[in-house]
Structures are given as structure tokens and as C-alpha cells.
Nucleic acid binder design. Structure first.
Length: 419
RNA sequence: CGGGGACUAGUUCAUCGGUAGAACGCCCGCUUUGGGAGCGGGAAGUACAGGGUUCAAUUCCCUGGUCCCCGACCA
């Protein structure tokens, strides 16, 4: 991508109507634009990063045996009345309205009803289980107070997986596997998460598990042990911050955190309500045990920025950066330098390495460096009259520059190492 | 849903009862060239909307809208 053609350019000043680091920096660097409170448009850089984050969770769900599909955001009232959620939950956070034929319609906040209704038509035998299906789809929530940029919005991207198992034991096994897959996915996108026990909600007496990123700007409160892995959401925790860990007796602390994932035991609440059961080997009907597993790519994107930034801008983990390389051409008015930079840009393309090439002639070196720092791509490669036959390579997160040949850099990139 | 703040050029802001200004950005020219360069010229505005007070309102008052913050809420 040529920076000179990129829509849009970066801004020198942060927007006045954003307070959180993620919203300020993502706006300033040209990833997003606010559409209304809690609703954002994703610009070319933004959708590249969002797609990379989605791809990580997609791969991990596929590895679990999940099958991707996509369900409608529109929800008919009758379906939600079958599970008794149109009035309670629905009235609180679901956008509900009547269409021209006076039919009651809602916009989905979650899809247990839809997927269970579909499954009830197709799943009849124990041989049809287990079934794991997921989607990466836009959800709507009528939040009373959206805030923190991408962290709490009215419209957001969600990966939601639904599990259908023959027994509670089989369900429990999958639940643990999914938790492991989540940990791997968060690690891949550069987030350290804590697995936190939380309310099971209306579904179950068992705890649900939240995946929380500890950070001061977070709006959740997590009570956790400094030594062992005990962690509970403060909503359900009865300990105060001078208490002792119930597992190991060590000191516990309370930290702010952002919830980036949440997994639930659903039991048979939805399968019962929507008539989903299977026959076992002896021909007897058996209820289907379900689980639901949420993971929010857009919220993850905001959280990554909250965690990985400095005073100059965003510092993307390499796995989710919009491009692998920020190629900066200085002295671009010199014909030989320009030709060399363009050649290197093309060679990266041949290697399948995504490059954002700052090919502008006018701006000063300082302006180009500042833009690259703001956008936050991991590797910055400079070509100028000073660099001669080498490339000047610097990591966004480091100060030192290294001079190397194109072949050396490509070798490093393809091995994901940097010395 | 309670409480507070804001709304003026593309953006960030100043002005303050007498019909609008800077910086950045943008366009043109010249000079520059390794951390958001310099000089000169130029384009750019229904001051959120509606109503009221006044000889006169962007400015004061009222109503509404939008955005931000604190709280409540967050299966």
C-alpha cells in the first residue's frame, strides 16, 4: 500500500471528543472514526487489524473442531419468547422495534435461540453430537452508557461459539478445551489474560469464566491472588482487599481489568425450551447440554491499544499490525533513491510481505517517522541516500536501528525472529 | 436513568452583546531535507437547531439535539 494513496491520513492532534487511549490513538492514526456514541466506522487500516484479530480466533476455533457459519442480526419476537428472554433481558439491552407490518423485531445481542432452533431441526441422534458451531458477527446492545472507545460499544464484533454435547461430562471436557484455545488466542494477539470466575448468570449455578486483561483503565474489578491462580470478579467475590486467598492463604489484591472473553455453561435451558434432544444408543431421548463462548475482536482491538502504546502512538503486536513493514523512503526526490525504494517495495510484494510504503516526496523525515510511530507497525524500514545498499531497520518498540540487506530482513521476517 | 461539562474553519482552540480570529491541515510558489522545517501568497464559517430578551445575539435566557466525564447499569 502506498501511503500517499491511503485513506485517510493521520492527524497531528487527538480528537477532542475522545478520552480513552484506544479511541484517541485509533482515531488519530486513521483506523476508526466515531459514527455515534459507542459506534465506530472502521477505515482501511482499522479493518485490516480487525480482520487479523478475527483470523486468530477463527483459527483457534477451527482447531477445536468448530464450524464457522453466520446468523442474522434480526430476531423475531416469537423465538425469544420461547426462552422467556424477550421481556426481561430483551427489554433491557436489545434494540426492539416494529417493522412496517407491525411485526416485533429485535437486533441480536447473542444467538442461543437462533442456533438452538436450527440445531433442533437437524440434530436427532447421539451420532450428531458433539456439535460446535461459531460465527464472527456484529452484535447490538442498547448500552445505557457506551464509553472507552471500542471497549464498550452499542455495535461490536463478536465471535460466539455454541457447543452441543451428549452429556455434562462431555460438555465439561469441551469447556476446558475452549478455555485453553482462548488462552492461546489471547497470547497470539499480545494480551496477557487472567481467567476469572464470574456469575453463571441465569443459566447455571456453576461459575462462568471471564478472560480479563489487568489494566488500570479497565472498568471491571477483579479480586485475585498474587501467588496462585485464584481470581474472581468482584461482583461475586466476598473477600475484601485485605483478605487471604481461599486456596493458598496468600495475599489477595483487587485490580482493574477489561473483560475480553467469557464462557458459559448453559446446561439444558435452551435445548429444553426449543425442543432439542437426541436419542441415545438405546433409543431413549436425552437432553443436549450446551455452552456458549464469547470473544470480542473489536473489544480486543481496543484493549490491545490500551495495553500497547506509548506517548508516540500505538505499538501493535506483529500478529495484528495492519502491515508487517512500515517502509519509509527519505530523499524521495532523488531518482536513484526513489528507484531503490520502489524496487524494495516490489520485492516485499513478491515475498508476500505486507508493506505500507511512505512514498511521499514533500514531508520531512521527522513527519514520516512520527506517522510511522503513530500507526505502530512493528518493523520500520528506512531507505535514504544514507542507507546505500543496506536497509535501516528498527522495531517500533525499540530504540536501536540495524543495517542489513533485504535478504537478511526477509529471512528474519519469515522466521519471526529479530536479533 | 441521575449529576457535571462542552458544541465557533477539515482539525485543535481563541474571541464574547456591535455580524469572526489563530495554529495545524489543504492549494500555489520559493527555500529546505534523519524526529511533526522556513518564507510568501491563497481557499476555507448559516458560530448545533429552534425560540426569547435587545436598537443589535456566536456571546445572555429557555427548549431540544449531539458528544464527553462521574454515578447507576453491564445475560
Amino acid at each position: 500500500m502506498l501511503y500517499s494513496k491511503l485513506f485517510p491520513k493521520t492527524l497531528k492532534q487527538a480528537p477532542a471528543d475522545e478520552q480513552s487511549a484506544n479511541a484517541k490513538l485509533l482515531h488519530q492514526a486513521g483506523f476508526i472514526r466515531k459514527h455515534m456514541a459507542g459506534v465506530y466506522n472502521f477505515l482501511p487500516l482499522g479493518i485490516r487489524t480487525l480482520n487479523k484479530i478475527s483470523q486468530v480466533i477463527r483459527e483457534e476455533m477451527d482447531n477445536l473442531g468448530g464450524q464457522e457459519m453466520i446468523m442474522s442480526a434480526f430476531q423475531p419476537r416469537q423465538l425469544w419468547e420461547k426462552t422467556d428472554r424477550w421481556e426481561g433481558l430483551g427489554k433491557e439491552v436489545m434494540y426492539q422495534f416494529k417493522d412496517h407490518s407491525q411485526k416485533d423485531v429485535g437486533l441480536a445481542i447473542t444467538h442461543e435461540e437462533v442456533i438452538t432452533a436450527i440445531a433442533s431441526q437437524m440434530v436427532h441422534s447421539y451420532k450428531d453430537l458433539p456439535l460446535y458451531v461459531y460465527q464472527i458477527q456484529t452484535k447490538f446492545r442498547d448500552e445505557p452508557r457506551p464509553r472507552f472507545g471500542l471497549i464498550r460499544g452499542k455495535e461490536f464484533l463478536m465471535k460466539d461459539l455454541y457447543s452441543f454435547d451428549i452429556s455434562n461430562q462431555a460438555h465439561q471436557d469441551f469447556y476446558k478445551q475452549c478455555a485453553q484455545a482462548y488462552l492461546k488466542a489471547f497470547e497470539r494477539v499480545g494480551l496477557n489474560v487472567l481467567v476469572v470466575e464470574a456469575s453463571g448468570g441465569v443459566f447455571s449455578k456453576d461459575y462462568s469464566h471471564e478472560f480479563q486483561v489487568l489494566i488500570d483503565s479497565g472498568e471491571d474489578k477483579v479480586v485475585h491472588c498474587q501467588k496462585c491462580d485464584f481470581a474472581q470478579n468482584r461482583e461475586i467475590c466476598h473477600l475484601d482487599n485485605r483478605g487471604q486467598c481461599p486456596r493458598c492463604g496468600s495475599e489477595i489484591v483487587i485490580s482493574n481489568a477489561i473483560e475480553v472473553g467469557n464462557i458459559f455453561h448453559l446446561g439444558t435451558r435452551f435445548s429444553d425450551a426449543l425442543g432439542l434432544s437426541v436419542t441415545d444408543e438405546s433409543g431413549k431421548p436425552v437432553p443436549v447440554t450446551m455452552g456458549s463462548y464469547g470473544w470480542g475482536p473489536s473489544r480486543v482491538m481496543g484493549t490491545i491499544v490500551e495495553v500497547h502504546h506509548d506517548e508516540r502512538g500505538i505499538i501493535w503486536p506483529d500478529t495484528v499490525a495492519p502491515y508487517k513493514i512500515s517502509l519509509i523512503g527519505l530523499d524521495m526526490e532523488l531518482e536513484n533513491v526513489r528507484r531503490k525504494a520502489e524496487k524494495v517495495y516490489k520485492l516485499f510484494g513478491v515475498e508476500g510481505i505486507e508493506v505500507l510504503f511512505d512514498d511521499r516526496v514533500g514531508p520531512s523525515a521527522g513527519e514520516k517517522f512520527a506517522d510511522a510511530d503513530l500507526i505502530g507497525i512493528l518493523y520500520r524500514v528506512v531507505i535514504s541516500k544514507k542507507t546505500k545498499d543496506k536497509l535501516e531497520v528498527k522495531k517500533r518498540s525499540e530504540k536501536n536501528t540495524h543495517f542489513m540487506t533485504l535478504e537478511q530482513l526477509i529471512d528474519i521476517l519469515t522466521r519471526h525472529k529479530f536479533s
